[in-house]
Amino acid sequence: MNADKVMKKYIPMTETAFYILLSLTEPRHGYGIVKHVEEISGTRLHLGSGTVYGTLTKMQKDGVITVFADEERKTLYEMTDLGKQLILAEIGRLKELHRNAVKYEGDFL
């Protein structure tokens, strides 16, 4: 899938997809992703195994992430260059949201 199509398909991102990608600062196992997301979201998010597996499979098909086997033959998920491009684009969008949220927040108080 080319970059434009991937951007269109994934942005704006669901919370699940965003946090899964955000957790791939280093290669992780499937359950390692779940634990890490739980940690950085302050235990707010408990991703279900089926949801994580389904999302990872889809992302792998679209070339956003890739896999390899570690010395114990377990599958590790890793970001691709396309994936990095994608998460940066989404972070840019979220920054805009955040900027505007802070800017206009006062008007509603």
Binding site: G30, S49, G50, V67, R73
Partner: peptide, 22 residues
């Protein structure tokens, strides 16, 4: 309990579920 249909089975499918305690 959870019953589901899988069109392809991968080892990573089983390990994600099992690691989570299923």
């Amino acid at each position: 309990y959870h019953a589901e249909y899988m069109s392809t089975v991968e080892s990573s499918y089983f390990s994600i579920y099992e690691d989570a305690g299923w």
